[in-house]
């Protein structure tokens, strides 16, 4: 079970890594924002899985903080840096 949870955590992390490709690739700012959001929820998922696998209940607190802060950062993204460039691939 523990090993399974570690593997699942690694899988989520791997999918986050895939998502990062979008950040680097673009083409719009919205894409990069989305990827950041993915990292937020991916990070939460990893933290929860680790909390179980490492037997540390208080990691749920860290996950809670990540959820709240990620929400704030997402809003900061949109409010401060709404997609300034043209969409649909025109950069």
């Amino acid at each position: 079970m523990t090993e399974f949870m570690f593997l699942m955590a690694a899988a989520v992390l791997g999918s986050v890594a895939l998502g990062l490709w979008r950040v680097v690739r673009g083409p719009t700012r919205a894409d990069a924002m989305m990827a950041a959001q993915l990292v937020g929820s991916g990070g939460v998922a990893v933290l929860l899985l680790l909390s179980h696998a490492m037997g540390r209940a208080h990691l749920v607190d860290v996950a809670l903080v990540v959820v709240l802060l990620a929400a704030m950062v997402s809003v900061a993204f949109v409010r401060r840096l709404g997609p300034v460039r043209g969409d649909d691939g025109t950069e």
Partner: peptide, 30 residues
């Protein structure tokens, strides 16, 4: 408690991103 919060946050954030995207495309690139 965590899941509803995440649900709320990410749904709203996605809405905001989509809205910004639409506004942007209506105003034209640049």
């Amino acid at each position: 408690l965590l899941w509803p919060l995440a649900l709320l946050a990410s749904s709203c954030a996605c809405y905001l991103v989509a809205e910004a995207t639409l506004l942007q495309s209506r105003r034209g690139p640049g």
